[in-house]
Structures are given as C-alpha cells and as structure tokens.
Design a protein around this nucleic acid. Sequence first.
DNA 1: TAATGATATATTGTATACAATATACAAATA
DNA 2: TATTTGTATATTGTATACAATATATCATTA
Lengths: 218, 218
Amino acid sequence: MSPSKIRHLSLSEEIYSRLMRMILDNKYPDGYRMREEKLCSELGVSRTPLREALIRLDREGILERMPRYGCIIRRLPASGIAELLECRRMLECMTLREYFQNIDMEAVNSLKLRLEEAKKNGDDELRTEILNTDETLHELIVSACGNRFLAKQLKDLQLRCRPYRVLRCAEAGDIPAIISERRNIINSILAGKKADAEKWMQAHFDASRSYYEEQRTE
Amino acid sequence: MSPSKIRHLSLSEEIYSRLMRMILDNKYPDGYRMREEKLCSELGVSRTPLREALIRLDREGILERMPRYGCIIRRLPASGIAELLECRRMLECMTLREYFQNIDMEAVNSLKLRLEEAKKNGDDELRTEILNTDETLHELIVSACGNRFLAKQLKDLQLRCRPYRVLRCAEAGDIPAIISERRNIINSILAGKKADAEKWMQAHFDASRSYYEEQRTE
DNA sequence: TAATGATATATTGTATACAATATACAAATA
DNA sequence: TATTTGTATATTGTATACAATATATCATTA
C-alpha cells in the first residue's frame, strides 16, 4: 500500500479556507470592505497569497472583487436568496428524479432515526439538529448525483446558502411543521416513491423560498 | 445619462481573456504543461498577473492547476464530454421547461430564417453556419432563463463544450439529419409547443452524446 | 456657502527578488 | 547492471518593492 500522500497545504490555500469559513459563518458584516493590508497583518501573511485566495473566493461567489476598489462581503438581499433557493430547487429536484436509484438508503434510514431521536431534545438543541439533518439530507442528494459537473454545481449552491440557513432556522416558529416537511421527503425516499419524494422536496424548497419572499418589504 | 464607464482592463484580466480564447480554440495540445516563465516571456508580462489569471481559469475548469507542479491543459476524454453534455441536457431542458414563456420569439424566428438561408451554401460554409446557429440557439435559452444563478451555470457549461463542438461538426456525415434536429426544436418553440420543444432538445443532446459515447473504444 | 480644483494619502495592480520544493542527472554501491 | 543517494537545476510559492490609480483633504473662487 502506498503511504497516503503528504500534502503540504500552500499558504494561499490555507488563507482561502480560513476566509471561506469566516465569511460563511457571518463573521463579517454585510457590506464589509476587506482591505488587503489589514487582512495581511491579521493573518500574518503577505499580499501575494492573500490576493490569490481572494481571487478564488470571488470566482465562487463568496465575495465580490471590484477592480481598483477591493473586496466587499455582500450578503444577498431577500430576493436574491429566494432566487438562489429557486435555483437549488430546480437542480436538486431534478437530481432526485434523475438519480433516485443511486440514493444511499442506509444513510437515509439512519437520518430518519436521527431526526426522530432529536425530537426528544429541548428546543435549542432540536433546532440545531434539524439544521444538521437538513444539511445531511441535501448532501445525500449530491452523493447520489452520478454527474460530476452537476454535483459540483449543487455543492457550490449549497455552500452559498449557508450564511442564511442559520439565521432562518433560529426564527422559525412551527417546529412540528418543519419536522414533518423533512419526514415526508425521507419516508417517500425510503418507500421508493420517486414522484412523491420530488413533490415533498419541492414543497420543502417552496417553504424556504416563500419565507424570504415575504421579507421583500425591506 | 451617465457616461459609459471607462474600464481600464487590468493586465491580469487581459491575460485571462487571451488565454481563455487560446485554450478554447484548441491552440494548445492535450496535456500541454504551461510553464509560467515561458508564458510570461511570450505575453510580455510578469508572473504575478499571469498567476492570477491562471487561478481564475482553473476555477472555471478551463485548465488544471496542480500544487507545486503547474498548469496543464487537459482535454476531456470522450466519456467526460458525454458527461458534460449530459449535464447540459438536464439543465437546458429544464430551463426550456421552466422559462419557456420568456423566450425571445423574434430571435428564434430570425434564427429559423438563417438556418434555411444557410442551406443554399456549399458544404463548408453550411457546416460553419450550423455551428453558429447552434450557438445562438443555446444562447437564446440562456437569455430566457430568469434565474441568474442557473444562467451562469448554463453559460459556463456551454463554454467548456466549445473546444469539442468544432471538432465534431467537421466530421458529421448526415447533414440533413443535423439540420432537421435543429429545425424541430425551433419549430416547436415557434408553435408554442413546450413539451415538444423539450423532447426535440433532449433528442438533440442525445445525438451529440451518443457520438462521444461511441468513441469510448479509444 | 457651495462648487471646483490641486495636493497628499491610501490602496490596489504589477514587477522583481527570494525561499521552498520538485525534477533531472550523475556518482556510488550492492 | 540495477538501485540508490546526493547534488545541481528548474519551477513554483511567497515576500517585498515599485507604479498606477482612487480617495480624502483643504484651499480657492464663483
């Protein structure tokens, strides 16, 4: 057996991951303008690898680089989030339809158990668990996707939704409804009912989307 | 009216566009390893902006950057092209279905005329015109797409197909069949028959895909 | 006072220099 | 001879220095 390859992560890549996490975890306020020198001294690196990291983050839509101006962190307006979710709805439902037979049933089943187990917890922990199972569910769909190109797009879109997911779940009121939303999908998958699974998945996304669409008043 | 903003294109961006075009036009052989210094002297620039351009091209799947090794231009194997086309099939057909009412009928109609006009040409020019109309047709779908995120993905995928498109069309044998493939789509759209249009579009992609799948013997 | 223009400062874009690593080649050893 | 190991070379990764541009400040003028 070959020894697992040692990968000396380049500085640029480390910066990339670190900034990615910071941004996706909402550590920077909306509209925050990143100054290269400032970031450099904070991270203890020089501008070259920092800029290379920023360029990659820009290409992935994590931040926005404007020529001769710099980078800003721009949270999507509610309408933008709705649009992003609409894109995910289309792609994930399609994936569910086209690659239904690839889904890892074992994993879905243990997800079902996890969700039921979670109901025994208090409200705060329950909300966290819902978020986690939600993430797992959508990751399962990516795993089932037999097309690399489509899978990458799904993954990127899911990442971009991350900053908003957290906020919403903390506010949601009707917990039982939220749980049954997920349970319907999971049960349909386990029962092998493709059309139903897709239908419930549509509903799941529609629920999120309308949440943001209602906020358009801002 | 505000004066159209003067955009001093940065060196990095110019390099980016230039390399992009070179690569998509198959100017580099498959597996070509790009050496930074060599590229620099060829383009008359320093390594910093060159590297920034390479990083962006890497993120878009136009080339492959490997840590501590460099960039290589890698053409997809036939199976990869088939997979890429399969992804486009799913996305473009979905877009056609979801945003059918947004399609610019004027443009489709003039496309129809262009295609019929083209038939009067000799074989070489006809092939070129088919390629052009094909591109326009797929661009029309992007334009109709009411979702920014999806539209960007469609565009990126279309770009990545470019290097292969040219090769295939030059080889194709049954020109009349190829023309009717497109005509069926166009006519269905003009007739407002959404389901038919999607069906013919599916067939259109399937034809391309099977062309590459048959080459798997390599 | 409001608007304009000149100057100084700050910030990004690019080039170069240096460091770390990988590749190629030759010598040494079994 | 085949394999290994050390050394030289080439190439990428990072830091710094410089250039071009944008932003802010303040004086000037209508």
